[in-house]
Every structure is written in C-alpha cells, then in structure tokens.
C-alpha cells in the first residue's frame, strides 16, 4: 500500500509559539495532551474533553480550535499559538493587561481559552460588536465571572486599539 499507516509513536513537527518543535505522540493522543504532557504547555486546560468549554483553545494555522477534539498527529507541520505565546509576564499584550485590570478572571482556569479565543477574534475583526464578541465566545464557558468583566476587558482592549 502506498500510504503509511502509523501506529506506535509518531514524530510530529510543528511550529509552536514561533518555535520549531518536534515530539513523539501516539495516534490516540489529542493535541491537548501533546501540548500539555509532551511540550509542557499546561496553559492549555482540559475542562470537558468534548469541545464544549473552550478551555483548551489554541490557534492552529490561523484558526481557533479546541485541542481536545484534534489529534496530535493532525498537527503535523502546523503553526500553533497557545496562551504561552501571547505575551510574557513582562511583556503582556493589551488583552492580558486588561483582563487583569478589569478583573476579567476569578479562578483563572478558563482564562487561557478566553484570551486565545479573543485574540483570534480581534486578529480577524479588530472592532467587533458586543453581539459578535458574545457569539464568538459562546464556546468558552466561564463559571466564575458571569462574563461581564471579561466583556469589559475585551471592550477596553478594542477601545484602546481603535483610538490609537
């Protein structure tokens, strides 16, 4: 047969947060597991395991995905941005800064997903309406904040960007 059928561990190469990475994953591993357990990027959280909470969101080849619903082997030659790739502790991006200043987080476990998802939205549409923001984030569950202060943080970021 012309096509190789992979079992056992597969070498996967991808660009993660701008850095080339190669690691081994079994075909059954999700991208979420690979990011967390193979690459140590534990900012990616597992909340539901079936695409309903958004805590595992990353941007993959320019598009928001739930990594619990992607196999690690599917990430071959992809470009991925996780929350760890957004900003650094001494170089926060405005969105991160505004989540802090607007108290847009409480327990913080959904926060990476919200940040990544919002970044994906704003990169595509720098000036979304409230309805567009809420629709875009409907797949990101937050149980602590009631979403209000998350929306405030996002709207403040938009206001700062559009007035600059």
């Amino acid at each position: 047969m012309a096509v190789q059928i992979a079992s056992g561990k597969v070498a996967i190469s991808a660009t993660i947060n701008g850095e080339p990475q190669t690691w081994l994953s079994e075909p059954r591993e999700t991208l979420l597991e690979a990011l967390r357990d193979r690459l140590g990027l534990t900012g990616c959280k597992e909340g539901c395991s079936n695409g309903n909470c958004g805590a595992c969101n990353v941007v993959m080849d320019g598009r928001l995905v739930n990594t619990c619903c992607v196999l690690a082997v599917e990430a071959q030659e992809s470009e991925i941005t996780t929350v760890e790739g957004l900003g650094t502790p001494d170089g926060l991006i405005p969105l991160q800064k505004n989540f802090l200043e607007e108290a847009g987080l409480q327990c913080g476990v959904c926060t990476p997903g919200f940040l990544v998802a919002t970044k994906a939205l704003l990169d595509k549409n720098p000036n979304p309406t409230d309805d567009e923001i809420r629709w875009w984030l409907a797949g990101n569950l937050c149980r602590c904040t009631g979403y209000d202060k998350i929306l405030n943080a996002i709207k403040k970021t938009i206001a700062e960007t559009t007035t600059e």
């Binding site: 900012g43 760890e84 926060l92």
Partner: peptide, 9 residues
C-alpha cells in the same frame, strides 16, 4: 497571581 494566570503559567 494575575500575571501567572493570564500567561498560562
């Protein structure tokens, strides 16, 4: 603890 929580750390 905010910075750690918005940077995934």
């Amino acid at each position: 603890d905010g910075v750690d929580k918005v940077t995934g750390r």
